[in-house]
């Protein structure tokens, strides 16, 4: 009996110590996240997806993805932020971040953090730039990931 008490105490102490050491990172199960995101593409057909790892740094970080599109096609871009520990800014522009003048096409600014999936539809564009602005944070802050998925219309359905 005494053996078990000592063992259990040691185990509990070890795990308590570990849990205090740093915040656990949010699990980024890319398959589960992408499968869920795909349900928001309907009635569009899967075209591509981009999973971006988000690690908070002492300074703000901007990650930009250029999405190649075709004029004359209609697209839906679905985002899934459920694996993010805190809100990041998501903006879609018509030009890249080094362009002198660019137009904001979409922003998650007014979407509450509790709403984890949202979509944006676009047509008559040859490319868009999806920008993630990751706010500065303490390096011990939990990391996570964010996914966007592009859907297109087969046969103009």
């Amino acid at each position: 009996m005494k053996k078990y008490i000592i063992l259990n105490t040691a185990l509990i102490a070890t795990f308590i110590l570990m849990s205090f050491y740093g915040e656990p990172n949010i699990m980024c199960d890319q398959k589960a996240i992408k499968d869920k995101t795909k349900t928001f593409l309907d009635p569009y057909t899967y075209d591509s997806a981009m999973l971006t790892r988000v690690m908070y740094k002492k300074k703000e970080v901007v990650k930009e993805t250029e999405v190649a599109l075709f004029v004359g096609e209609k697209y839906k871009i679905a985002f899934n932020t459920e694996a993010l520990p805190k809100k990041i800014e998501i903006n879609i522009y018509n030009k890249d971040l080094e362009a002198r003048k660019r137009t904001l096409l979409f922003s998650n600014k007014d979407i509450p953090f509790e709403k984890k999936q949202f979509t944006f539809e676009i047509e008559r564009a040859r490319r868009v730039f999806v920008d993630y602005t990751i706010p500065a944070a303490d390096s011990s802050a939990a990391s996570g990931c964010v996914v966007f998925m592009v859907g297109f219309q087969i046969k103009g359905k």
Binding site: M50, K63, T65, E66, A68, E73, V150, F152, K155
Partner: peptide
Amino acid sequence: LQETTVDLPSPLQLASI
């Protein structure tokens, strides 16, 4: 502090166009 990536379409979309 800035990173850029590229997302390419699928072969199915090219054929569909």
